[in-house]
Measured scan of single mutants.
Amino acid sequence: MGFKLLSKLLVYLTASIMAIASPLAFSVDSSGEYPTVSEIPVGEVRLYQIADGVWSHIATQSFDGAVYPSNGLIVRDGDELLLIDTAWGAKNTAALLAEIEKQIGLPVTRAVSTHFHDDRVGGVDVLRAAGVATYASPSTRRLAEVEGNEIPTHSLEGLSSSGDAVRFGPVELFYPGAAHSTDNLIVYVPSASVLYGGCAIYELSRTSAGNVADADLAEWPTSIERIQQHYPEAQFVIPGHGLPGGLDLLKHTTNVVKAHTNRSVVE
């Protein structure tokens, strides 16, 4: 069995187990497998329904001669939608809004960016022009300005110390501490036991640490421990890039980060 097929099978099995364990909360999309990078042309966006009122959005972007996937989250909030992270750029984010209108038909009224990198804030200006209120932590807003990236308009308070959590509509926002970046936030959907790890969490097929220019490698494993301790009931975990899975993604990420750190020390 090929690795790609095995990865998709694991996603399907995880979703099936969740649907059985929580039949009222989960209505997993039966329309197909989780979209992969090879299936999404740059400039297009796919939506994948995880649970009743919960979707991931998947886009792709060219970077350094390669094409990478990027995940975000959409959560229903009454007759409105909360968006977590842009679709990595203005063109993708405009396509995301169009796809949401086509498939869901509810307005996106608020959006949260989970850290300051372009795959999370690139497209904020498109959201703002569409009347979406954009939010991020003060740290993310400051770092985005320093980096020359787009800056969300509103500040999220109460997320300055490791372990801080605040309720934001249908989700809980959690600051686990520094990891992929010093400002990275985690998003949890309690009604569906869905954990969105953003770039602080890796997919299972990833074996290298990737972009760690703004990471705190020493603190990252401790931050992941905080996530595990705060959300032990999480059933569906979405990484910032690639295929979702279960809580095993947290341990896998820790292993990859520690291996990278150990290699760096040896070198």
Rank of each mutant, 00 (worst) to 15 (best):
G2S: 13
F3H: 07
L5W: 14
S7T: 08
K8W: 14
L9S: 14
Y12P: 06
T14F: 08
I17C: 11
P23S: 10
L24C: 08
A25F: 11
F26N: 11
F26D: 14
D29N: 10
E33K: 12
Y34P: 09
Y34W: 15
T36K: 12
V37A: 15
E39F: 09
P41H: 09
P41D: 11
G43C: 04
G43W: 03
V45P: 14
V45H: 04
L47G: 03
Y48I: 15
Q49M: 12
I50M: 09
V54K: 02
V54S: 04
T60S: 14
S62F: 07
G65A: 10
G65Y: 05
V67R: 15
P69I: 11
S70C: 03
G72M: 03
R76G: 07
G78P: 05
D79F: 08
L81R: 02
I84R: 00
T86P: 01
A87Q: 00
T93S: 04
A95Q: 12
L96C: 00
L97A: 00
E99A: 14
K102T: 11
Q103Y: 11
T109P: 05
A111Q: 08
H115K: 00
F116S: 07
H117R: 01
D118R: 08
D125Y: 09
V126F: 14
V126D: 05
L127K: 03
R128W: 07
A133N: 11
T134D: 02
L143S: 06
E145G: 14
E147T: 15
I151Q: 06
I151F: 07
P152S: 05
H154A: 08
L156V: 09
G169F: 06
P170H: 01
V171R: 02
V171M: 03
L173E: 02
G177P: 02
A179K: 01
T182Q: 12
L185Q: 01
Y188D: 03
Y188T: 01
A192N: 06
S193M: 14
G197H: 03
C199D: 03
L204S: 10
S205D: 14
S205N: 10
R206C: 10
S208A: 12
S208C: 06
V212E: 06
D214I: 06
A218Q: 14
A218T: 13
E219A: 12
E219P: 04
W220N: 01
W220D: 02
P221D: 07
P221A: 11
T222Q: 13
S223R: 03
I224M: 07
I227T: 09
I227L: 07
Q228V: 13
Q228P: 07
Q229L: 13
Y231C: 06
P232W: 09
A234S: 09
Q235I: 12
G242K: 05
P244D: 03
G246P: 06
L250M: 06
K251S: 12
K251R: 14
T253G: 01
V256P: 00
V257R: 02
K258A: 11
A259W: 08
A259M: 11
H260T: 12
T261W: 12
V266G: 13
V266T: 13
V266W: 12
